[in-house]
Simulated scan of single mutants.
Amino acid sequence: MATLLENWRTKAYGDELGKEEQKKLWQKYFSLEKGFYEEILKDPSHVYEGSLKELAEHFKIDSFFFTGVLDGIDESLKGYHNPIESMDEDTVVKIEIDPEKLYYNMVEAKANWLYGLPEWDQILTKERREELYKEQKRSGTVRREGRKIYPNDPCPCGSGKKYKKCCMRENAE
């Protein structure tokens, strides 16, 4: 039997659903995810703890989508990880965010609908958000020591594409 996480990832990222169904799944997920973060960011020091099912009910998200939320937030928690690989609805999980990690990871995921939420104004200064944004963008910049990479050069990532058709696009965003 597939775990909750395997079920989530298969439907969200796999080819089990048709393109239109998968698009609808993601639209619903992004809407639920935004509401989740709006609530979490109202009091970023609050620690949520309970079974997956209890927390899903608290946030008014069904267990399937809440599994996706837990998968997405796991790298932004304070010094621990939930057992997302093996969890079921009765698994006790904890959500205690590290606001700077969370903001950085939202920028990395290009989730401007999340790192642009007005709730951030009360948590991190505009200057700190700009620093974290720039720090994350620099972390993905491809540089060769001593040699400039031109748009028509082969991409240094090894994809075989020209730099302008590969990582140059990503670095420009």
Rank of each mutant, 00 (worst) to 15 (best):
32 L>V: 09
32 L>H: 10
32 L>K: 01
33 E>T: 01
34 K>Q: 12
35 G>T: 10
36 F>V: 03
36 F>I: 03
38 E>M: 14
38 E>I: 15
39 E>W: 09
41 L>E: 05
42 K>N: 09
43 D>G: 10
46 H>A: 09
46 H>L: 10
50 G>W: 06
50 G>S: 07
50 G>N: 09
50 G>C: 02
53 K>V: 01
54 E>T: 14
55 L>C: 06
57 E>P: 11
58 H>Y: 15
59 F>M: 05
60 K>N: 12
62 D>Y: 01
62 D>P: 07
63 S>T: 11
63 S>N: 08
65 F>A: 02
66 F>T: 01
69 V>Q: 04
69 V>I: 13
70 L>I: 06
70 L>K: 08
70 L>P: 13
71 D>L: 09
71 D>H: 15
74 D>Y: 09
75 E>M: 14
76 S>N: 13
77 L>M: 02
77 L>K: 02
78 K>W: 03
79 G>S: 12
80 Y>G: 06
82 N>C: 02
85 E>Y: 13
86 S>D: 11
86 S>C: 09
88 D>A: 04
88 D>V: 04
88 D>F: 07
89 E>T: 05
90 D>R: 15
91 T>Q: 00
93 V>Y: 02
95 I>K: 12
96 E>H: 14
97 I>C: 01
99 P>K: 02
100 E>M: 07
100 E>P: 00
100 E>L: 05
100 E>V: 05
101 K>L: 12
103 Y>E: 06
103 Y>R: 06
105 N>H: 11
105 N>M: 11
107 V>A: 01
108 E>S: 14
109 A>D: 13
111 A>F: 14
111 A>N: 13
113 W>C: 00
113 W>D: 12
113 W>T: 05
113 W>S: 09
115 Y>S: 02
116 G>I: 05
117 L>E: 00
118 P>F: 12
119 E>Q: 15
122 Q>R: 15
122 Q>A: 15
124 L>C: 03
126 K>E: 15
126 K>A: 08
126 K>N: 12
126 K>R: 13
127 E>A: 10
127 E>I: 01
128 R>H: 14
129 R>C: 00
129 R>L: 01
129 R>P: 08
131 E>M: 11
131 E>Y: 04
132 L>R: 05
135 E>N: 07
135 E>T: 08
137 K>D: 11
137 K>S: 05
137 K>Y: 12
137 K>M: 11
138 R>P: 00
142 V>H: 07
142 V>A: 10
143 R>A: 11
144 R>V: 11
144 R>P: 06
145 E>G: 08
145 E>Q: 09
146 G>Y: 08
147 R>W: 14
148 K>H: 09
149 I>G: 03
151 P>Q: 11
151 P>Y: 15
152 N>D: 10
152 N>A: 04
153 D>L: 03
154 P>E: 09
154 P>H: 03
155 C>G: 06
157 C>K: 00
158 G>L: 13
160 G>W: 13
160 G>A: 07
160 G>S: 06
160 G>D: 06
163 Y>Q: 02
163 Y>K: 01
164 K>T: 05
165 K>G: 01
165 K>I: 02
166 C>K: 04
166 C>M: 05
167 C>L: 13
167 C>S: 08
167 C>P: 07
